[in-house]
Design a protein around this nucleic acid. Structure first.
Lengths: 116, 116
DNA sequence: GGTATATTTAAGCACCGGCTTACGTAAGCC
DNA sequence: GGCTTACGTAAGCCGGTGCTTAAATATACC
């Protein structure tokens, strides 16, 4: 899976509020699937599905111990996501300043050219 | 609308690939709705709906000139989103507690009602 | 006013995604 | 082996959302 595809999956993953809550929950320490589920008002399978999505998006690390599975946030995935999003608008933050500065001027130019 | 709510809307907005494409298209210069639509293989109304979503998420600025509407990326919205995401994995203990407590309460409520 | 252009809004449809219950799987314990 | 615990997977329901075409709105031009 390419980095961009992973990042796109990560964006979709964090678009869901519940998954953001899960991420916050495992940000500092690893937590078992059951313990995670216990914090929410939905069934365990629902949480299990969320965990799968987060894991596939590279945002979660899984460690198995006996019948238990422990999850924790995966900093590399989070950093990847951050870089991807920055790439989306880094040019924006740079270039739009210029655009904004030239806004009035280009505006009047456009009005003139539209007359043709 | 609170900052967090706007940011949450922004995350959902950029979760769609087409909307990310639109954002890239208007990140350097403002572009009219029609010109934006011309870049894609979907109908104009479809693009118009995407533009509305992006605008409501604070990611797009709109300028009207005659019958035309020009759109451009809105750096403030993008910065807000960035900060929000940073805060996601910089979550404080206070945030964790809030999530845990709120969920735990509704969780016990749910379990009680299920037992009947 | 009447027509043309640019765009949004409305209504409906098909697919997607999150949820549920039921079942499957795997490890630990007696 | 048989039971329990901890999870994941399967199948299906249902609301949300992205798309379409048709109609409405708004501005410009004659």
């Amino acid at each position: 899976m390419s980095a961009a595809a992973t990042a796109a999956a990560a964006v979709k993953a964090i678009a869901d509020p519940r998954r953001r809550d899960i991420l916050r929950l495992v940000r500092r320490r690893e937590v078992s699937a059951g313990d995670i589920a216990r914090h929410f008002d939905v069934s365990r399978p629902a949480i299990s599905q969320h965990l799968t999505v987060l894991k596939n998006a590279g945002l979660l690390a899984e460690r198995r111990d006996g019948t238990r599975r422990y999850y924790r946030a995966r900093p590399e995935g989070l950093q990847e996501l951050r870089s991807y999003l920055d790439g989306l608008w880094d040019a924006t933050l740079r270039d739009l300043k210029r655009v904004a500065e030239a806004a009035e001027e280009s505006n009047t130019r456009r009005k003139r050219s539209r007359a043709s």
